[in-house]
């Protein structure tokens, strides 16, 4: 009997442990993001060197391996990689967040309208969404960059936002479609609620949780996309640095000086992981099945 009780105790403990796991996800994710956010904010203070300055004795500083003076080594032009990653954090995180903030209201509005009104409005909006989704992102990026003449911060934002809103719109539309059938929405209609009330008091609040979760994943995906654009040379242009452009620069030396890619890559991976941990945790919390 006592053995059984001990087993029960263990299982109970493990169960609590299971609950801790998602708390831990949010905790760890927030911690990572806080860390990188701080880095981005304080990069001028934290950076040991000027990330843009090319030293005079270029030969002596070019492509140094990680060491005591330059913890993460230097690039071809002798600039300190650590400092560049710290500065790059600003652009990468900014791109990720700004794109998401810009895109969410647009996507939510389109999704709400398409889902609630249905019929022709839905058909038109969703065909547009499909068309944008089906269009190869890279071609769009190249085309847009060509139109904007010079790739840069703004072009990156525009390119990413131009594609990203579709995901949000689809998500919200799906939510609205399933909610629209819910009896509490019908009840509100039966009470005489007008369209605005249905949309803003009933549909929108019930979409917020999934939107928030999608936003965290969205930032992560934007950071990755920025890196991809940067890698292709379509990202921010020198002298501005982002993690993506660092990857692009380092790629040339991938076999001989791999750290030029590894460290920016690690920064990207950790940040994306942070957002995903946070997003997963939020999803767990918002999942009504996990609430008693």
């Amino acid at each position: 009997m006592s053995e059984r009780q001990r087993q029960n105790g263990r299982r109970y403990g493990r169960r609590l442990g299971g609950r801790w796991k998602w708390h831990r996800g949010i905790l760890l994710g927030s911690l990572i993001l806080f860390f990188f956010g701080l880095i981005a904010l304080l990069s001028p203070l934290l950076s040991p060197y000027d990330p843009y300055r090319i030293p005079e004795k270029l030969q002596a500083f070019s492509l140094l391996s990680p060491g005591a003076d330059h913890w993460l080594g230097t690039d071809l032009l002798g600039r300190d990689l650590l400092s560049r990653i710290l500065y790059g954090a600003r652009i990468s995180l900014l791109v990720g967040v700004v794109v998401e903030l810009a895109v969410t209201p647009v996507g939510v509005t389109i999704g709400l309208f398409a889902g609630y009104f249905g019929g022709k409005i839905d058909a038109v909006l969703m065909r547009i969404t499909d068309a944008v989704m089906a269009f190869p992102g890279l071609v769009l990026a190249i085309a847009l960059t060509a139109v904007l003449e010079r790739p840069g911060f703004l072009s990156v934002i525009i390119v990413l936002a131009a594609v990203r809103w579709t995901t949000v719109a689809r998500l919200v539309r799906g939510q609205v479609l399933s909610l629209r059938e819910a009896e509490h929405i019908t009840a509100a209609v039966a009470l005489g609620a007008r369209k605005g009330r249905i949309i803003f008091r009933h549909l929108l609040p019930n979409c917020l949780a999934p939107i928030l979760v999608a936003m965290t994943f969205g930032v992560a995906s934007n950071i990755l996309s920025e890196a991809g654009l940067g890698f292709l040379g379509l990202g921010v242009q020198p002298p501005t640095v982002s993690w993506g452009s660092l990857l692009a620069e380092g790629a040339v030396y991938l076999t001989v000086k791999p750290w030029l890619c590894i460290f920016p890559g690690l920064a990207i991976t950790c940040t994306v992981l942070g957002f995903h941990l946070l997003g997963d945790g939020l999803r767990d919390i918002f999942d009504p099945r996990l609430r008693s």
Partner: peptide, 9 residues
Amino acid sequence: THFFTEEGV
């Protein structure tokens, strides 16, 4: 048969 949940057994 017991279920060990977050809220208790």
